[in-house]
């Protein structure tokens, strides 16, 4: 009888285990169903032309649903390591979301500052934090330079250099 009991337990547990393995594998399919759709991923690349930008004036573009700050620096704004240089022009480019909790800071040209209305964080024109709570500078999105155009979503050489230097975020 004892032998039978063991055998019964073994088969019942084997079946339960086998079913559980199938269940875990099917979780993979379920996970895949939650993934962003291919069309969403394909739309993750945006090309913007920044040749027409006016110095000192903030342009806001859209990439992956997020605002992208494009600010051509005026001659009196100091050069910075985070600048993106195209020809003679220097640009500040970043994702326009406060690194604190994701609100969009407003640009004040007279002060040359980005001020976040939500919790009062302030960034300078290089995206560096001037006043807390934001814990880190505005994030530079992955980009590739294509002449005077900027392809957002791709990691070009200039981006990789910034990233290696730890300057993108």
């Amino acid at each position: 009888m004892a032998v039978n009991e063991n055998r019964r337990d073994f088969l019942g547990m084997a079946l339960g285990g086998f079913t559980a393995v199938g269940g875990i594998i099917s979780l993979g399919a379920m996970k895949a169903s939650w993934d962003p759709l291919p069309s969403v991923k394909a739309a993750g690349f945006t090309t913007i032309d920044i040749s027409g930008a006016k110095a000192g004036q903030l342009n806001v573009e859209k990439w992956r649903g997020k605002p992208i700050f494009v600010l051509k620096k005026t001659p009196d704004m100091k050069p910075h390591d985070r600048d993106i240089v195209i020809g003679k022009d220097r640009f500040h480019i970043s994702i326009g979301l406060c690194t604190h909790l994701g609100c969009i800071p407003s640009y004040f040209p007279k002060k040359s500052e980005f001020i976040c209305a939500c919790h009062g964080g302030i960034f300078d024109v290089n995206g560096e934090v001037v006043k807390a709570p934001p814990p880190s500078p505005l994030v530079i999105p992955p980009f590739r330079l294509d002449g005077s155009k900027l392809v957002l979503g791709e990691e070009g050489d200039e981006y990789k250099k910034l990233k290696a230097a730890g300057l993108v975020a």
Binding site: N4, L11, A14, T19
Partner: peptide, 17 residues
């Protein structure tokens, strides 16, 4: 198929007494 084979033996063991 494998599930059914295991289930068959389980059923046999449960019902044999």
């Amino acid at each position: 198929v494998i599930f059914s084979v295991i289930a068959y033996f389980w059923k046999q063991s449960m019902w044999k007494d």
